[in-house]
Each structure stands twice: as structure tokens, then as C-alpha cells.
Amino acid sequence: MNVDELFKKGLQNSEVNPPDAVWDKILSKLPQGVSGSNNLDSLTQTLSTSAKVAPLKAVAKMAAWKIVSIVAAVVSAVAATVVIVTMNMDNYVVNENLNENLNENLNVNNPIEETPVFAEVDSTDIDNFENNVSDGNDVSSFDEVKENNSSNSIKTTDTKKDETPLSCNADKDKKEEKDDVTDSEPNLDVADAVEKEQPVANEPLVESPDTLIDMSDKTQTQENISSSSENDDISAEDIEKLNELMSTSDVDIPRLITPNNDGINDCWIIPGLEKYNSVHVVIVAPNGKKVYENKKYDNSWCPTDLPDGSYFYFVQIRDGNYKPKQSTLYIKNK
């Protein structure tokens, strides 16, 4: 049976429908109406420019209205004179009087036309303008948009926070760096490797990911020994040193198994075991009886009928020049 193929066949193109709540969560975090931060920026820009322009436009509008009204007054006055002239062609005196009146009117009107309109707008029509504005939809809708915009920007910063929690991760980053260091550790430099591996081995159990990687580094060196053609830089001397290192250093053998048939820790699995051709394994019960022996162990020991307690194991890798390893193994049937 090929594990790879089984899993590939079973899971490669599988489809599982997520719960409906997922979409709601996505929707709540999506900035609505705009999809990217760039669009948001441009929106705020247009908003700010329109905010600057809008009052100016209103003032200009008011000024225009003023001028139009004045012009209208003048035109109506002129029209009145024309009408009166045509109606009363005979009465020159009256006409002249009227003309004089009109001229006076015009004289009165003209200065108004020339006076700075903005001053008047400022003093008298501002209130009007404000009323207009507060009645109209322009400004209120603008406020709304602005509000929406600000809430959107808050949302986006929130999601950003979610994605990259920077503040609380200082120690985590350090740990990762440490991982990287162990990962990128050159395996040629044996002296360095010894120095570095010793303190890691002494560290408490909490640091298990590191020790795991550490372990994999060791197996990796083992692989380099077995297939030296892959890495031609290693000299025979180095290999000897590595062998020594391997034989003295700890292989990561599990100390606890729980054979309760739940698929987890049921079997006694020595990581990296498949690298070796023959590994001799003996398990001894507390009373000195041998309960298991296999000269080519293949991670297949899953005891089901043993009582809880500490057992002794004895592991010898026969491929190379390794020291046998023995220690205790705790079995706990839950």
C-alpha cells in the first residue's frame, strides 16, 4: 500500500462545504464598496478636494445670483422707461422727469453693482447660505460619506492588525530566528555542531520544536554519511567525526506511549528509523521478563496487552558504529 497515493487519491480534489457563518465573517471584514487601500486613498482625496471646493462654489453661486438680480433690476427699469416713453410720447416733461428718476435709479444701482459682492455676501447672505446648505442634501450627504470613509479606514486597519500581530510576538520571532539558525547550521563544521547541540539538549522540554529540528539535523548528517556522493565536500575525516558525534549523541526515542487504540501514540515510533537497515530492539518488563524483541525494528510495536508502568528498552543501530542506547519507556493504557 502506498500512503502517498492513498492520501492523494482521497484528498487531492476533495471538496467540503464550509459553514455559512464563514461568509458572514468574511463580509464583515471586507471593506464595502471599495476593494483595496488604493481606492480608499483616492476616495479620501476626492472628498477632501470637494470639501475645499464646495463652499467656494456656493459663494460664487450667491455672487452670481446677486449680479443677476441687479442686472434684472436695471433691465426692468430700462424696460419701464421704454414703455413709459412709448405710452406717453406727448408728455416730454413727464418723460424727462421719469428719465431723470430712472437715471437716479441707475446711478443708485450702478454703484451697488460695482461694490465688492463678496463683502455683502459675507455680511448678510451668509446666514441665508448656511440655511440653504443645511436644507440641501449636499453637505449632509458629504458628511455621511466622510463617516463611512472613516469607519472603512478603521476596519481596514483592524484587519491589518489581525494579519500581523506585531506587538505580542517579540519572543516568537526570536524563537523562529533560533530555528533558522539551527536549520541553516552548516553540517560540515563539526566542532561548531557539537558546541551548539550540547546546550540545546540541555534545554527544558518546552523547547521541543527546536530539539525536533535538532534531531532532524542529526539524521541529516547520517544521510550525508550514507550517501556521500550527494555532498562531495565532506572528507573522510569529517565522516569519522560525524560518526563519533552520532554514536554519542541522543537519538530522539519516545519515552511514553499510550496504546489505547485512538490512533495517537499507540505505537512506539522511533523517528528517522527508516534511515537504518537493521535496528535491534529489546523491551524488558519491570520484572525482568523480555516482552518484545525485534532485530529489524520497523516502528511496528503497538502493545495492547501490557499493564501500565515503566519498561526498559534497548536499542542498537547496527548500520554503523553506534553505541547501544538504553533507557526507560512508560506505557499508559488510558
Binding site: 500500500m1 500512503v3 502517498d4 492513498l6 492520501f7 533558522d180 536549520d183 541553516s184 529540528i213 532532524s216 539535523d217 539524521t219 541529516q220 544521510e223 550525508n224 487504540n261 490512533g263 499507540d266 505505537c267 515510533i269 523517528p271 528517522g272 528509523l273 527508516e274 534511515k275 516502528n299 511496528s300 503497538c302
Partner: peptide
């Protein structure tokens, strides 16, 4: 960002564990 050999080790280990779990059932 791992070494090739490290990846291989993890891969084989995962396969061995899956295999042992499968064999049980």
C-alpha cells in the same frame, strides 16, 4: 526556508506515522 534533507526527514516521518495509523485500522 528549510534544508532539503530536513524536509525529507519530516516527510518520511509523516509517512511512517500515517502508515502505522492506517495499519491499525
Amino acid at each position: 526556508n528549510l534544508k532539503k534533507t530536513v524536509v525529507k526527514t519530516y516527510y518520511y516521518r509523516a509517512r511512517a506515522r500515517l502508515k502505522s495509523m492506517l495499519q491499525k485500522n
